[in-house]
């Protein structure tokens, strides 16, 4: 069964006729060819596919495209400025070596950005608890925690 969907992705209106069973991440990666959003497990356990829908971080592997009908979707490609200047959270990850292989990174950054407004001057433990839906196999998380803390401070 096909359905028509319309949404805004990274500020641009997109419309498509797609299979109703298509997940949001498939739509983003295969249809829109925005391959910065990754698939690590497809069961919403790892968080590599995290994007924002109407400002909330969601795991796009576990959402049907139709569920994002009319929504404002922000992917990692929409976070930096048009000229490529990085968002403060992205810059903080670079500054504090909060990434290694880069695969979990877009999802991690999208999850981290959502914490703005939720956490004020957070402790390491609060940050650790807040990002436990995103798995990273490379960094041991320590530099991610430092990055998130610095990124949130820079966003304030």
């Amino acid at each position: 069964m096909s359905v028509n969907v319309t949404m805004k992705v990274n500020g641009q209106s997109v419309s498509a006729t797609i299979e109703a069973s298509m997940t949001l991440v498939e739509f983003i990666r295969e249809h829109l060819r925005l391959t910065g959003t990754h698939v690590g497990c497809n069961t919403s356990q790892c968080g590599a596919c995290t994007v924002h829908i109407n400002g909330r971080a969601v795991k796009s592997c576990s959402l049907l495209v139709a569920q994002a009908q009319g929504a404002e979707v922000l992917t990692i490609e929409g976070l930096a400025a048009a000229n490529g200047d990085m968002h403060p959270m992205q810059a903080a990850f670079k500054e504090h070596h909060g990434l290694q292989c880069g695969f979990c990174t877009p999802g991690m950054v999208m999850s981290a950005c959502e914490l703005k407004g939720k956490l004020v001057d957070p402790t390491d433990e609060q940050i650790r608890a807040s990002i436990d839906g995103n798995i990273c196999r490379c960094t041991g998380y320590q530099n991610i925690v430092t990055s998130v803390k610095a990124g949130l401070a820079a966003m304030a």
Partner: peptide
Amino acid sequence: KRKEDHRFLTGNGQY
């Protein structure tokens, strides 16, 4: 600071 980070952080990695 790492030269490779910009592409990974902005979704421009090529896996």
